[in-house]
Amino acid sequence: MKKFILKLIKTTLLLYFITFGIELTIDFYLAKENSCNTNTWHKIYSGKLKTEIAILGTSRAEAHYDTEIISSITGLKTYNLGISGTHYDFLNIRWKSFINRNKKPKVLILDLDPGALKNSTELYGKFQYLPYLNSAEYKSVTKGIDSDYLFEKIIPLYKYRAYEMSVYKQLKSLKNPKYCHKNVNGYIEHDISWIERDYKKFKKILQKDKAHKEYDLNIFSQGLSTINSIIEYCEKHNIQVYLIWSPSYYESHEYQLTLKKHIDSILKKTSNKKHIKYLNYSKDSLCYDKNYFYNSSHMNKNGATLFSKKVGELIIESNILVQ
């Protein structure tokens, strides 16, 4: 019995240290500056992100604001902090990590994604946060929602489960950038068009939504309060805020229409109260051309290029910035 228990402990410890060593190695390489997934995180956590215009939002922000174009028009350093699939309550992880460690921007473009205002019940695409799960911002924002956090801390490699290929691609990307999406200061270029099969699926979803008109607006409380807290922070620190509802394909406008109208009225009130610019592009001419989208709510490279020009010109035209 004694021999067995000793062997069991010895083997368990050995395997624990091996797997722990592997985890540390992966963490180390994923946190490298040239890893495409954690490129932005690396800049944020090392305090190297010096930008004058910061763009904050979900995957829509990530895909819609071409930093190069905005930068060339405004002459200001621009960085896109958009993070995919993130509800606004979780957007605080990125926002707080950024402002706590880096120089404050002059302008904040807060991209609005009505689909992401819902209170989070789970964390989407956790891989985007790896290997930075130990940050204070991550812990405080996801407390009570990320139920795996403790296990992921105790069991080595557990946080990488089901991400074998993502880790592989990230590690490969260190030497070969072809494994990454084109990423220019956080802007992810999607040089693709909307495939017919996905378009048909989208039409089916629209059909289903027609029967569903009522929404519980209370479930958006956390998202809206996050927006308010960001605005208040910017107000205090003299950061100019633009609330922008970027384009989505016109056929999707009917989708969750009641909800959208409600959110729009809240945002209008907020902008009036706080004297900030609120621009709703959801009925812009861009919305009526399918060629500018790769799905109903995301513009492709063509759409993003035109839209980014509009945003850049808007900033110049509004003549808010004092050089």
Partner: peptide
């Protein structure tokens, strides 16, 4: 053993 354990954790 290590490969087996890692595969289990990752799956």
């Amino acid at each position: 053993y290590t490969f087996t354990v890692i595969s289990i954790i990752l799956s």
